[in-house]
Amino acid sequence: MTPRSLTAAAAMNETGERPDSERAMVTFPQGLPGFADCRTFVVFAAETGEFQWLTSLEGPAASFLTVDPRRVVPALRYALAPADLVRLRATEDTPLLWLAIVLVEADGTIAVNLRAPIVINPETMIGCQVMPQRSLYPVRHVISAPAV
């Protein structure tokens, strides 16, 4: 799948239906931490178009609401380790898709995991959740306190 079709998958059509051809399949060779059996996911745009859903196609039913981390913290800077690039079969110049997992807590607090973003290489459709050895950003970056 090409970057273009991923963009197509990220854009919502008017009827709200998603033809299979616009559902982007991504392989996570290492699974996701905590979901080691989930290696194939589909990425599709949320109804609003601003967010992406990452839904597992195997293993336990698991979907993640995600957002571009730079939408949350515009000045965000991440450096990928050389091993991460190898895993993604990417080079320094490959345009990558970054997604941060959103956590909606029971009391309505919304937090975003900026510590371990998901990175997808649209050219190979390989993804992984990266955990830099050191990071300035927290696992639970609260973007909103509970509604009063």
Binding site: N113, R115, A116
Partner: peptide
């Protein structure tokens, strides 16, 4: 383990 726990907490099973 912290990332595993965060992922489990964020996963929804009813996104279909």
């Amino acid at each position: 383990e912290q990332i595993c726990a965060a992922n489990r907490a964020a996963a929804t099973s009813d996104a279909a």
